[in-house]
Structures are given as structure tokens and as C-alpha cells.
Nucleic acid binder design. Structure first.
Lengths: 356, 356
DNA sequence: ACCCGAACGGAGAGCGCTCTCCTGTGCGGT
DNA sequence: ACCGCACAGGAGAGCGCTCTCCGTTCGGGT
């Protein structure tokens, strides 16, 4: 009886405790818990009962130590913020004010949760923060990283690739890096917008671009121009925005001042399209009767807009889930040189509502 | 030379490797790395050099295994969502569409990052998700939880308290639970709003409340009513909103329909105030000349509003940082029964801009 | 010169888990 | 009846780290 005092340690139950209760060895309990190899159904039952009786939960640190996997991934928002604490706080707020990141998070969690994994949220807007991300991965705290960059010249992808750390990017990196990514066929999306506006009968069409130092901004503009040119519109008035609502308002105001007769606008994202609608309304133009507006993303802002936006759907949640899937694949091929590096390009889709 | 082949294991360097290079024992390296006890400066220097030479990074799993601390905390967004996958995705999107959560995240990260900690993001909107959170904490994957509830009847705080897991809430729980929290003196904030509107000369003042099944919604209404009553306004027209922009628009429309003569509105958050401003403008009222509007939160929406909102500042970032601080304190007193349970109430502040 | 204590480095025992080996058992083929 | 094989379960060696305990050294008080 008293040969081995049980429950003398106040800590949570361990495999050893479960094994003692079930009358089997640690190894067997481990096999049952992890569903590895065949175990006699009767013994399986006994182990399960013992697990329930003791309230056993596997200790993740111990498991990670031997498997060398953390079962954790880092969700990194990377980009350039300031170095001061105020600017860093502003970076986080700014990031979350865009519905885009909520959708990414949502998609990632949707994929990870059924697999009992959870993302660690990190920002990498300064050099020091970037080092923290790398250290975090190197010390095995996370098995890989999902990276969303806000700037084209973000050094993080290169750093991760050089260090051989598994990572997947949202959007193709500006410079080629041996790293997986998911992206959207931005040019095709912009083409859809152009063709829709033309089919509607618009003839004096302008565009509000995203920041042109971002690949997505460039591609959407290029795709739009190409499609317009192919239909005989070699010149398209352009105003550059910054993917924010405010910048959309300013860009729209500039366009209207220079081209008061325009009858169609393609904004490179919904937030800017929303700002554009507002300015148009304030300046007495009806949307879509006088000026048709097409957005991009199909974010929550599109439906909330007055009038509801016709927009190009970017399936961000699906893309984010695909990122997680690619990362998992990449992690399984860690030893291979460049093993498991792959990319997936999603096709956009036109969503017709009221604005065009 | 070949007695102990070095570098034969391809894996990352371990304490052992560093010790060999520095010519000391594992224990000494550990002491230097963790800054525990005094170590001869010369040896310290040698160890640091060896760490740099090997590119050593401590393995977190091994450390956690023995220290029984994960150096990780969970950031949990808790509330009621649907059970279907679509509804769960919608929950995440909805959560992030409110600038509030971005500010919380920003504040938490601001506190954790200098301490080399990073939050694990979790949602707990279904029973299964809640169980995952509890399991995550129980298996030592995180040392504690920061919980932001979106509903008053959220069972998570009680579950965590019962399980004896360290946690800190944002906002006082609807029913008393032995658990730390930070909160705002909502009543005082609402009083500031009332007094400002009255001091401005408004006499027919209405309010758009938050959801009344949320403590913050109740308290802001109660505080507003009390202050108004104290100044002789026993009756205040009320329309209930849901803390979203849309609900603010609807509430404002209802109020205007019933009380066309009103000259002041207090909205229980900025998003609803923004919606209210929009409706007022659409119905030909000038803000603030005809109707003064006061919001609550001082979120990014306040400055973005047209006109910029006079609002009651809730220092969300500071409050979130305080949550993290309280959680750390609570974790240091894990063994004490109810040790380290404490609450901090922040004082609101009126920020005067143009809307009132 | 002696002793005691403070201070610092090393040895080694685990933390809880997985996984490779090994042993025992039941079954088929010849 | 024998051998061998497949398979289930147990034993035990670590994974990389921390931390207690112990040995050694050195300084100062008498």
C-alpha cells in the first residue's frame, strides 16, 4: 500500500500516474493517447478510463522536447513602423484597423483550430522585433511562420529563408526568395473590374491605386491599364492612394478636380472605394447613376458602404488557410533542401452589388 | 581530438556544446545565460564568447519542462458565436472590425514584448473552443490568460477561476468571480459627457446606449442618466444600439423620428457616434451647430469621424498593459489561495474636438 | 598559522514525454 | 511437433535544461 505513495505530488497527473492506475506501462499509455500502433481494445479502454479518472493532460513541453516540434506557429505582421514606442503602438492599431488582417487571422485560426494548434501573434516592424521573431523560431518555440508583410522592401522573408526556417508569405515577395507564398491573380481581378465598368457603358474611367511600392498595388494598376488599353482606352487617369479610407477620399477629390466628367472609378481596395463614394456623394454625384464605382477585396467595408460596393472578391480567409496548409507541408519537408516550397495563386471573382 | 566528435549532431547547439567550447560546465553556462548568481567576470566573458561562437539559443521546451513555466500567455477573445464554421469565421471578422481589439492587442504586446513574451491568440466562442482554452492552460502551454469577453453571460471566467488558472479579465464580470480585472469608471465617463453637453447649452439631450446585456453598456447609461438627473433632467430619450456603426445609425434615426427637436446626443461608443453623425447630416442637421454629439472610447474612429468627435477617452492600451501586469503578478502567486487577485479601475477623460 | 564562512564552479538528478529496442506470446506453415 | 514470424507490451535511454547539493578556493578574523 504505502510502497509508492500516490498523489503525494500535488502537481498535475503525468503519464506515469495514468499508467499506474491503468496497470500498464508509460509506453502503452503514450501509444493510446497518441493513437500510434495497435493496442488491445480492452487495454485501450482501461487507459482511456484511467485518463478520465486522473484528469490527465499531456505536458506539451515534455512532448516538444523529444519530438522537436512545438505544435505552434507564429503569425507575423511584418513591415516598417517607427522605432519609438508610440509609433510601434500606432503600427499595431493601424494594422488592425484594416479588416484585411481580421480575415487573415480568421482564416488561419479556422485551419489551425481543428488541429489543436494556435497562432502566436508577433509584430516585426523594427529590427529588434525581427530578431525576436527569428530567435523565437530558432529556439523551437514555433515550428514556422506565417508572414504578412505591409511593405515591399520587408527584409524578413529573406532573413527567414536564409536561416532555413519554414515560412509562408501572404503575397509574392518583391524580390524572388525561395519561400512559399499564396497570392491572388491581381491582374485578372483588375481586368474584371475594367470589363465590368466598360460593359456598363462607362467611357471616362479613372482609377485610384494602392501604394505603388507594394506589389499588389502595382499589379492591380497594371492589370487595369492593360485591360483598358485592350479595349481602346490607352489613357486612364490615375491617383495614388494608400489603401486607407482617407487616402481614397483624397485621391477621389483630386481625380474629380482634374476630370469632372468621369463616369467610372476603379479603386484598388474597398476602403478607398468607400472613401471615394463618400466624396462623390458630397460633391453631388450619384453612385452608380453618375459615377460607377468598383472596389477590390470584398471586405466587410464593401457591404457596409453606401451604396453597397460592386467589388472584386479576394478570398482572404481561404488564402490564409492555404498558407497554414503550405506551412505544414513545408515543415514536414524541413530536411529537404528547399523541400516543400510551393505557391498557390487564387483567382478573383467579381461580386456585383449596387455601386456599379 | 577525436575523443568527442564535435558538431557531429546536425541539430542546433545546446548548453553542452557551449560549455565545451567555453571550457566550463553546463551549470555555469546556464547561470551566465540566466544571470543567476555571481559568476567570475572572466568566465562570464568566455561563456558569452562561446554563446556567440556557437550561435546558441536556449531551447524553450527543455527550459519549460523543468521550470514549469511556459513564458507564454493566451489572449482569449471570448463570447457567443454560432456553432457553424461560417458563424465562427464571422465571429473573428466581427471581432477585428472593432478597433477596440486592435488597441487591446497593441497594449498587450507593448507590455509583453520587452519581456520577450508573445501572446497566443485564441477564440472561445463555442463550448469546444472553450475546452481547448482550458486544456491549453492546463497542459502548461500558457501560464495564464487575458480574457476579453463580448458577452455578459460568458462562462469562461467562472470556468477559469474554478480550475484555479491564472487569468485577468478586461471589464468586470457580470457576476462576481474571484478573478482579477481591469475596468474603466464608465459612470464617471458618462457623467463627463453629460456635463459637457449641458455646459455647451444643450437642453434636449438623448442617448444611444450600448447593448444593455453588457455591463459597460448598462454603466454608461446609468452614469449618464444619474448626471442628467442631478442637473434636473429626469427624462432622457434612449435608443439601444449594439456598439456597431450600423446600430448607431438606426438608433439615431429612431431618436430623430421621435424627438426631432433634440440638440445633443451621447453615444456609448465612437462607432455608434460616427453612425449618428452620418444620419444627422443626411437629415440636414449640422454637427455640432444643430446637434452636438459626444462619443465614448476615443478610438481611431473618433478622429476619422466627420466632424472629429468629442469623446470620452478610454485608455485601452494602458488598460491592456495593466492586464498583462496583473496576470504576471497573479502567476507569481499561483500557490496562494486567491493570491494576487486584484483589480484596477481607470479614470476616463474628456477629449474635446469638434462634434460637441 | 589556524579555522570558519562566504563565494563560486561542477556533478548529477531529474522534469514528462517519446521511441527504439527487446521480450514474450499466439499463430501459421511445413 | 518444430521453427519462424508478426505483433503487442515493457524497459529504458535520453531530449536540453535547471537547480540542489557538494567540493574547492580564498579571504579575514583571532
Amino acid at each position: 500500500m504505502s510502497s509508492k505513495p500516490q498523489g503525494v505530488t500535488a502537481g498535475p497527473p503525468t503519464l506515469e500516474d495514468v499508467a499506474r492506475v491503468a496497470g500498464v506501462s508509460r509506453a502503452t499509455v503514450s501509444r493510446v493517447v497518441n493513437g500510434i500502433r495497435n493496442v488491445d481494445p480492452a487495454i485501450q479502454e482501461a487507459v482511456r478510463a484511467a485518463v478520465a479518472a486522473t484528469g490527465y493532460t499531456p505536458n506539451r513541453a515534455a512532448r516538444s522536447l523529444v519530438t522537436r516540434r512545438a505544435e505552434t506557429i507564429a503569425l507575423v505582421v511584418s513591415g516598417a513602423g517607427g522605432e519609438s514606442p508610440e509609433e510601434q503602438a500606432a503600427f499595431a492599431s493601424r494594422v488592425f484597423s484594416d479588416p484585411f488582417f481580421g480575415r487573415v487571422t480568421s482564416g488561419v485560426i479556422g485551419y489551425l483550430r481543428p488541429r489543436a494548434m494556435h497562432p502566436v501573434l508577433m509584430f516585426a516592424e523594427t529590427g529588434a522585433a525581427r530578431d525576436q521573431v527569428v530567435a523565437f523560431l530558432r529556439q523551437g518555440s514555433a515550428d514556422g511562420a506565417l508572414v504578412v508583410s505591409t511593405h515591399a522592401d520587408d527584409p524578413l522573408p529573406t532573413v527567414l529563408a536564409d536561416a532555413g526556417l519554414p515560412a509562408v508569405l501572404f503575397a509574392r515577395p518583391a524580390r524572388p526568395v525561395p519561400i512559399s507564398y499564396v497570392d491572388l491573380a491581381h491582374r485578372d481581378g483588375a481586368r474584371l473590374a475594367a470589363e465590368h465598368l466598360l460593359a456598363r457603358g462607362c467611357r471616362r474611367i479613372a482609377t485610384i491605386t494602392g501604394p505603388l511600392d507594394v506589389v499588389a498595388g502595382q499589379d492591380r494598376l497594371a492589370g487595369f491599364r492593360d485591360a483598358m488599353a485592350r479595349h481602346g482606352h490607352g489613357y486612364v487617369p490615375v491617383a495614388e492612394g494608400g489603401f486607407t479610407r482617407d487616402s481614397g477620399e483624397e485621391a477621389m477629390a483630386r481625380l474629380l478636380a482634374e476630370h469632372p466628367g468621369l463616369d467610372g472609378v476603379f479603386a484598388a481596395n474597398d476602403l478607398m472605394a468607400q472613401g471615394a463614394c463618400r466624396v462623390l456623394r458630397e460633391q453631388g454625384r450619384r453612385v452608380p447613376e453618375d459615377v460607377a464605382v468598383v472596389g477590390f477585396d470584398d471586405s466587410s467595408a464593401a457591404a457596409a458602404c453606401v451604396p453597397p460596393l460592386t467589388t472584386v472578391r479576394q478570398p482572404v480567409e481561404d488564402m490564409a488557410a492555404e498558407m497554414a496548409r503550405l506551412l505544414q507541408r513545408r515543415m514536414e519537408h524541413r530536411d529537404d533542401p528547399d523541400g516543400g516550397v510551393a505557391s498557390v495563386i487564387f483567382e478573383p471573382e467579381l461580386v456585383v452589388r449596387e455601386s456599379a
